[in-house]
Design a protein around this nucleic acid. Structure first.
Lengths: 211, 211
DNA sequence: GACAAACGCGAGTGGTCGCTCGCATTCTGA
DNA sequence: TCAGAATGCGAGCGACCACTCGCGTTTGTC
């Protein structure tokens, strides 16, 4: 039991290889973004990156691994950029400001990296990607739940869970509308999204506020 | 210019043929529902229907035509069941009741025919299906807009348009949650959906209500 | 400079899918 | 009864896709 090397020993990479990987991931992001994961062909990704199919498979064992690595890097960039974006809000701040901050941050990230939405909310997701998606969703639900618990202290847990799910659904729907528009129109949809969430949640806090 | 027959002269069908078509469409609905349009293979549809691939192509010229015909029948059934579901609401009825009725009707239909959601909100849609989807969406937006105009008489048209889009986005998000749950939990999500819409729209009517 | 390893290529392989074709069977109408 | 049309079959065709392989090129190391 001493010699089982679980997975690939990571091949020694030259600087050129790392550059190629970044290039390929950028091409993959572009292709995934326009065609979705399933419809994207590895040949198309290689062509977009200006390399041959064989070169692509020098750095990724299969198509899924490309999406996995891209997803991992996006997730890492997200955490790096915002830290625990939602965790910094404490119940002392008004609900309106909490929504404002959270929505602005996530919208900004999704506008800057549209491939994140394409990968995560895309309909076609093979094994590991679907897992990653579910994991992220579960994390977000849990985070929103703890946040909501601060605002709705007397609401029973199952209800909080449901409200969190609804909030994320609303956010996703709003994000789609936001990404589909530009400039001033986009800003207007962002504001609508905030309004929807605020008006949905405000009455819940009032009900819970009992002396 | 007298003899160009634009499209197919509809072949004379026997009763057996009509039965096969219904059988194939039901199989297609099942397969589309579980795998989505693109991932669904015509062979799988034929197998599900218990016939050979050749038989399938006796009745449909290609894979897209299957989805088109299925979509058409679903649309027809929807109109037949609910008539102009949203048109029957007049501004005299309270907003709450209007939302109640519209949401209940559409939710019921989508629960009874889940393939409708799979076809319409599925990510993969080739030419004509995407067109049908866009047409349906445009119709719904227009309908919701006229409804909203009754409740928000003083709101400018672009704002009404945006609000209608947001309402449909919320509905779609809610529908996904509803379809993902069963029984009492499902009912709870239906109620949340109604609450979201009502709370989102109510302040708009108050603002517009000027003496 | 020499050797090995990493990089790069693109034709090729196996598999799947949409769809066809030749032929057999069943039904319709006279 | 019988010709012709509709129905039914399933092996197979062409296209495409994920992925491989053999071989040539570049890079790091001594």
């Amino acid at each position: 039991m001493s010699d089982h090397q679980e997975k690939e020993q990571p091949r020694r990479r030259q600087a050129r290889g790392e550059r190629r990987i970044a290039q390929l991931l950028q091409a993959a992001a572009s292709v995934f973004c326009t065609t979705g994961y399933t419809a994207a062909s590895t040949n198309a990704i290689a062509r977009e990156a200006g390399v041959s199919p064989g070169t692509l498979y020098q750095f990724f064992p299969n198509k899924e691994a490309i999406a996995i690595e891209l997803g991992d890097r996006l997730m890492h960039e997200m955490r790096e950029t915002y830290g625990e974006a939602l965790a910094t809000v404490d119940p002392a701040t008004p609900l309106e400001q909490a929504i404002e901050t959270a929505v602005d941050r996530f919208i900004e990230f999704n506008c800057r990296r549209p491939e994140f939405f394409a990968l995560m909310h895309g309909p076609d997701a093979p094994g590991r990607i679907a897992e990653a998606h579910d994991a992220l969703h579960a994390t977000l639900v849990a985070r929103v739940e703890t946040l909501l618990t601060g605002f709705l202290p007397d609401t029973p847990a199952p209800d909080v869970h449901r409200v969190a799910q609804v909030c994320l659904g609303i956010y996703k729907a709003g994000l789609e509308l936001v990404l589909a528009h530009e400039g001033a129109e986009r800003e207007a949809y962002v504001q609508e999204l905030k309004d929807v969430l605020l008006r949905y949640l405000t009455p819940l806090t009032h009900v819970a506020r009992t002396p």
